[in-house]
């Protein structure tokens, strides 16, 4: 194969390191919000935890209260960096556990979708490390590729059921939820006819047909190209940088899986 299993894992790991490093820097930058005087103090958020026992809540509090949360973030970041050189299941298992703890701190308020995809990347790498040296070795990459296809397809399926997406009238309304100033400046034309309906239909077609990327490597590269543009546009409009990097990190797995499928 032109893109070997080792290369696919290497690039997936490399982009995953980028994804988690971005998260680390951003969380570190926002650490004041996590102190007991900050917005997300543990005192203010502990009622959200569905833990019945006071003892469990105390243990959880110890792990995710400030400043221990910073130690936990640093621990995860160290493991992520190690994972580039040590492809061991234990490393990825510990990253999964620490990620779940970190996510609980924000109650999922922080970029739910990109966090979910980051976890899927780590779970895929965990499967890959578990199967290393066996015939199941490529399972981790296939797991990631299937999830990325589901993510686009499901997003498209929910949209096509909405008349405002089919008519193209939704774009102007959704863009207003961006934290950035509205209107969009140079790109303002995209919310007006005939561009808005055209963009909506293109997004629906791209998302719903995305699983086709799995059946042919050339087609896969085309989808990766448009995926890149799609996420770049989302970053520009909504500033969702983590989405861009999380989905980008899945593309090596996607391409490898399309090569694998085409060889069956």
């Amino acid at each position: 194969m032109i893109f070997s299993l080792e290369s696919a894992y290497f690039y997936t790991k490399l982009f995953t390191v980028v994804v988690f490093t971005i998260q680390f820097i951003e969380y570190f930058n926002l650490r004041n919000f996590l102190t007991e005087k900050g917005v997300w103090s543990f005192k203010n958020t502990e009622s959200f935890f569905p833990l019945k026992s006071r003892h469990s809540l105390k243990i959880l509090g110890f792990l995710i209260k400030y400043p221990n949360i910073i130690a936990l973030l640093s621990f995860r970041q160290t493991l992520i960096l190690f994972s580039l050189f040590l492809f061991k299941p234990l490393i990825f298992f510990l990253i999964i556990i620490s990620s779940l703890l970190i996510l609980s701190r924000w109650r999922g308020n922080f970029n739910g979708g990109s966090d979910a995809m980051s976890l899927i990347l780590i779970v895929g790498l965990f499967f890959g490390a578990l199967g290393k040296g066996t015939s199941w070795e490529h399972l981790g990459l296939i797991y990631i590729a299937i999830h990325v296809c589901i993510s686009y397809f499901k997003a498209g399926w929910v949209k096509i059921l909405k008349p405002e997406w089919r008519k193209g009238s939704v774009l102007n309304l959704i863009i207003q939820s961006s934290p950035y100033p509205y209107p969009l400046g140079f790109f303002s034309f995209i919310v007006k006819p005939p561009y808005a309906p055209l963009i909506c239909v293109s997004i629906l077609f791209f998302e719903l047909s995305f699983p086709l990327a799995l059946i042919n490597p050339s087609l896969c590269l085309i989808y990766i190209f448009f995926g890149f543009l799609f996420h770049a546009m989302i970053i520009y409009i909504f500033g969702l940088n983590r989405f861009f990097w999380s989905w980008l990190a899945t593309y090596p797995s996607l391409f490898y899986t399309s090569l694998f499928v085409s060889h069956i």
Binding site: N109, F110, G239
Partner: peptide, 25 residues
């Protein structure tokens, strides 16, 4: 919350906007 401005770095590190999304959520 006032709207932030786009900068080159927002492609990579964007804690302010991610925080604003968290506020909205």
């Amino acid at each position: 919350f006032s709207p932030p401005q786009r900068t080159f770095w927002f492609w990579f590190i964007n804690p302010r906007v991610n925080y604003l999304h968290a506020v909205n959520n």
